[in-house]
Design a protein around this nucleic acid. Structure first.
Length: 955
DNA sequence: CTGCTAGCATA
DNA sequence: GTATGCTAGCAGA
């Protein structure tokens, strides 16, 4: 893109993304990075985001502070800790640019920069240079244009270009090799991201901006035309040129305004187009080569001087310590800040009168003393405080320890609030702690250890010696209750600590933990460690007294936690190009459906709004209301629309539109946005203590509900790929819950069906319809399949009738016949209801306990619900136990045999692996063998395996 | 900006 | 009829 986009450029059929064959997703990820920072776009943000900080002599320093933090973080996150990397930080120069010559009113409305910010600009340039960044400021050329030029040249020179900016206009630069990130919001925009955010691909952004205009820069667009109309017009007419050509036929006020703007639009387009062929000679050494834009090491001596001049005490001392010179203030006077814990409202048993003492560690002597205590302790609790909830991105702000009740230490490491004291340097503290953290013999306990494992791994530390996790202890002990440390402390210690909200607030007003006062942070984090230790001491003996629970905790949940951390960290490759093309196609089909629907309805309406659909369907068109929602509104759910579709044309359009919108909004647009820019992969989080039955759940993103049932949906799985030289291998348990039902009930008919390797649904149909298996029709088999699933869910005649669309009486008849033929199953269901009512809980085969509070309590519907859970939970839960055992067995085999195969996903009854080509045979034979061998039930376990270039084809 | 509802994706 | 998580729309702040 050397020229501003030509107005007559036609909309390509697909985005610029190449096919995966000639450009796999891994390609771009492997290229060296060129990181371009739009310094100007962050000036205001840094200024406003920070409190009004001042140096001792009153010079404003808030924005400087913000820049230092941001540039450090960017370098760490994008380039990594090591040397090397290409980058530049680009600022607007003062004075007029070529745009002012084109259009004198350009940026004319802009308020002058506040003096407090203006005075910080020179120091910001200086400090960015000292941090090792090439700084670019070219008179007559705006930062946007310089960045556009560097991005084009860099991409052509084989770089993966990452542009860090707060300015959305730069979305026009995005292509296969150029990605935008917004450091403030952690948002990344690649091709699908731009499409998702703006509704147009990157190459249409210029047209889009031309139409809507830019009030900030005082560039008018078409009056009354906003994002929605712009997207609609561009979708209909391809490009700005197309829109202009069709201006005569566009109706309404917007059409009139468009015609008025026809003369202006070419100039507007020129103004919003980023110029990518600026001459940077004299500003970039060696131009047009960009090798000179290399990150240099921090100029520490000069930096020290800078920090001294502007009164950045804490940062200065950190740096001084790093340089080996003793940090004067820390060595001279810092003493421990003892903090008494907040008084507990209720004194826990055995805790009477215990004074709590939490220590803030600010000196090397204190740190050394605590490390000695950790090394001597039988078991230590630890907890990290971080700057993010995203485990893969979180950086440590502080770390706390406890080795005995009543005492804790908090080591603040990155507190940067207004009154933050000088703290020990993070790298030095972690280096000191590393031997203990990585010592497998040093026993550790935590609350949700998977999170702390990630956080420390983010700093290059592999924690070993995790012996216990209070989250998992509680989950196994009483899965139906809440497991936050706050709740555990209340339940097991009768104690209430400071809550995170007390410290940081919530919602938009929430402050990062690094801004929390160190004294309060000490109380909070110290409590977290100390309460974790105490909860463990209370809870573990109770848990261990039950052999079944002890086994589930120690032999299933703890090992699985470590495996999940590895799965999450490795991530899975997602081909953003594949998804971008699908998004594009879905958008096209959705627009066609919208057109048809508006035509039928006689007016436009929002097809994504159940409320508006209801108004059109039931009020305007007078279709019959089939059922109501919980709030009394007429329902428009799938079942209703399906029924109405038989008699009317509109519901079918709505149904299809809705399913396409779901696919696009939830998967094809979203997944690419979830790719971690540092790894090029998607890293889900598996929640191990959420589902009461023992299942895992997956979030951010949820990889356990990727579509499979419909052809359109299934294609999303084509985007889940393996790196070059690898394939995807998927292995899933066949009919695992029905096999468990056969085992638990001991029913001879069902057991025989599995023992003989029969098609179980066919076998069920043969019994229920009293036929030979060969004589079963496909519809009869479908009925039997529904019955089998229904049984697993504890269904009654009503539910079966509903899902088969038959009379309740007929459904009852089927169920009666089933139970007559499979009397063992009937007996099992009755027994489990009775046993649940008797004990108040049910158990899985391995002793996992699921408590059912409503099984005896009060009203009918709730008890009926609890009875269904009583039937379902042992089967679903045993299946969860089995696949967890399979994960452990397979991971152990992989480790012991030194395989390079990696487990990348778990989907309840399925394990997915990334397998190097030379290990395909191993995976194909060993994985299903190991999965089938985790337990000896009275029926065989069977795992089926598939291999393919992507997840779809591995099925 | 936050919380709720409706609807829907998976096993 | 079991178990989950996520999105868009929308109402009330």
């Amino acid at each position: 893109m050397t020229e501003p986009a030509a107005p007559d450029q036609a909309l390509p059929e697909t985005p610029a993304a190449a096919s995966p064959a000639d450009r796999p997703a891994t390609d771009a990820a492997a290229l060296p990075v060129l990181l371009l920072v739009d310094g100007s776009s962050y000036l205001y943000r840094a200024y406003h985001a920070m409190p009004d900080l001042r140096s001792p002599d009153g010079f404003p320093t808030g924005a400087i502070h913000g820049f230092i933090a941001m540039m450090k973080r960017l370098r760490e996150q994008v380039i990594g800790a090591g040397p090397g990397g290409h980058a530049a930080c680009v600022f607007d120069a003062s004075g007029p640019t070529f745009r002012d010559a084109w259009y004198p009113e350009y940026k004319a409305q802009r308020a002058p920069m506040p003096d407090d910010l203006r005075t910080q600009i020179a120091p910001i340039h200086e400090v960015v240079r000292l941090l090792g960044w090439p700084v670019l400021e070219v008179p007559g050329i705006e930062a946007d244009d310089a960045i556009g030029t560097l991005a084009r040249v860099g991409a052509a020179a084989g770089h993966r270009v990452i542009v860090s900016t707060g300015d959305k206009d730069l979305a026009q630069l995005v292509n296969e090799r150029v990605t935008l990130i917004n450091t403030m919001t952690n948002e990344t925009l690649d091709i699908p991201g731009v499409q998702a955010k703006f509704g147009v691909p990157p190459e249409r952004i210029v047209d889009y901006l031309s139409l809507i205009g830019d009030t900030v820069d005082n560039v008018p667009g078409v009056e009354k035309v906003g994002p929605k109309t712009a997207v609609k017009w561009l979708a209909e007419h391809g490009s700005l040129a197309g829109v202009m050509a069709a201006a005569g036929s566009i109706k309404g006020v917007a059409g009139e305004n468009l015609r008025k703007a026809l003369d202006w639009l070419p100039q507007g387009q020129r103004l919003v187009t980023v110029v990518t062929d600026c001459d940077l000679a004299g500003h970039v050494p060696g131009w047009p080569a960009i090798e000179s834009l290399a990150l240099a090491p921090v100029d520490k001596p000069a930096m020290l001087d800078f920090l001294q001049r502007y009164g950045f005490g804490r940062l200065k001392n950190e740096l001084a310590a790093e340089l080996g010179a003793p940090a004067p203030a820390a060595a001279a006077g810092a003493v421990a800040v003892p903090v008494e814990g907040t008084a507990a409202p209720a004194t826990p048993p055995g805790d009477a009168g215990l004074a709590r003492h939490y220590e803030t560690v600010l000196t090397r002597e204190q740190l050394a003393a605590w490390i000695a205590r950790l090394k001597a302790a039988e078991i230590s609790a630890l907890d990290t405080e971080t700057d993010s909830l995203d485990p893969m991105r979180a950086r440590i702000v502080g770390i706390s320890f406890a080795v005995q009740p009543g005492e804790a230490a908090y080591v603040p490491l990155a507190h940067d609030g207004p009154d933050a004291p000088e703290q020990l340097p993070l790298d030095e503290v972690l280096a000191e702690l590393r031997p203990w953290l990585e010592d497998a013999a040093a026993a550790k306990v935590g609350q949700n250890i998977k999170y702390d494992t990630h956080v420390l791994a983010n700093h290059g530390i592999t924690v070993r010696g995790w012996r216990h996790d209070t989250l998992l202890e509680s989950y196994v002990f009483e899965a139906h209750l809440a497991h936050s440390l706050e709740k555990l402390a209340e339940r097991h210690l009768g104690r209430r600590g400071l809550s995170y909200e007390d410290l940081c607030g919530k919602g938009a007003a929430q402050i990062p933990f690094s801004q929390v006062d160190v004294v309060r942070a000490t109380t909070y984090s110290g409590e977290d460690s100390e309460m974790t230790l105490q909860v463990h001491q209370q809870l573990y003996p109770q848990l261990a007294a039950e052999p079944g629970m002890k086994r589930v905790y120690e032999e299933i949940e703890l090992p699985v936690s470590a495996i999940l951390a590895r799965i999450e960290r490795h991530g899975v490759l997602v081909d953003a190009g594949v998804l971008a093309r699908q998004s594009q196609q879905l958008a096209q089909r959705m627009m066609d459906l919208e057109r048809e629907a508006y035509d039928i309805a006689g007016q436009p309406f929002n097809m994504g709004s159940p409320k508006q659909i209801g108004e059109i369907l039931f009020t305007k068109l007078g279709l019959p209301v089939k059922k109501k929602t919980a709030t009394g509104a007429p329902s428009t759910d799938e079942e209703v629309l399906q029924e109405l579709a038989a008699d009317y044309p509109l519901p079918a359009r709505i149904l299809e539109h809705r399913s396409l919108a779901k696919l696009k909004g939830t998967y094809t647009d979203k997944l690419p946005q979830m790719v971690n820019p540092a790894t090029g992969r998607v890293h889900t989080n598996y929640a191990q203590a959420v589902a009461v039955t023992g299942r895992l759940s997956s979030n951010d993103p949820n990889l356990q509900n990727i579509p499979i049932r419909t052809a359109d949906g299934r294609r999303v799985r084509e985007a889940f790929i393996a790196p070059p030289g690898h394939v995807i291998v998927s292995a899933d348990y066949s009919q695992i819950e029905l096999r468990i039902m056969a085992h638990m009930s001991g029913d001879p008919g069902l057991t025989r069906a599995f023992a003989e390797g029969m098609d179980v649904h066919r076998a069920t149909a043969a019994e229920v319809f009293n036929l030979a298996p060969d004589a079963v029709t496909s519809e009869q088999r479908r009925y039997a399949k529904t019955i089998n699933f229904g049984l697993i869910y504890g269904m009654g005649a009503f539910g079966l009738a509903q899902s088969l669309g038959i009379e309740q009486k007929a459904a009852k008849d089927y169920i009666d016949r089933y139970f007559a033929r499979f009397a063992g199953v009937k007996r099992y269901m009755d027994d489990i209801r009775a046993s649940a009512a008797d004990k108040g809980y049910v158990e899985t085969l391995f002793g996992r306990r699921i408590t059912l509070l409503d099984i005896r309590g009060g009203n009918g519907p709730r008890r009926a619900g609890a009875e269904r859970q009583a039937i379902n939970a042992p089967m679903q839960g045993t299946a969860a136990d089995l696949i967890k055992l399979a994960m452990i067995a397979v991971q152990r085999a992989l480790d012991e045999q030194g395989k390079r195969t990696v487990m990348v996903m778990q989907v309840h009854d399925e394990l997915v692996f990334e397998v190097p080509e030379d290990e395909i045979d191993w995976a194909r034979s060993e994985v299903p063998r190991l999965m089938a061998g985790v337990a000896a039930l009275s029926v065989p376990l069977l795992a089926e395996v598939g291999v393919g270039p992507n997840w779809e084809q591995a099925h």
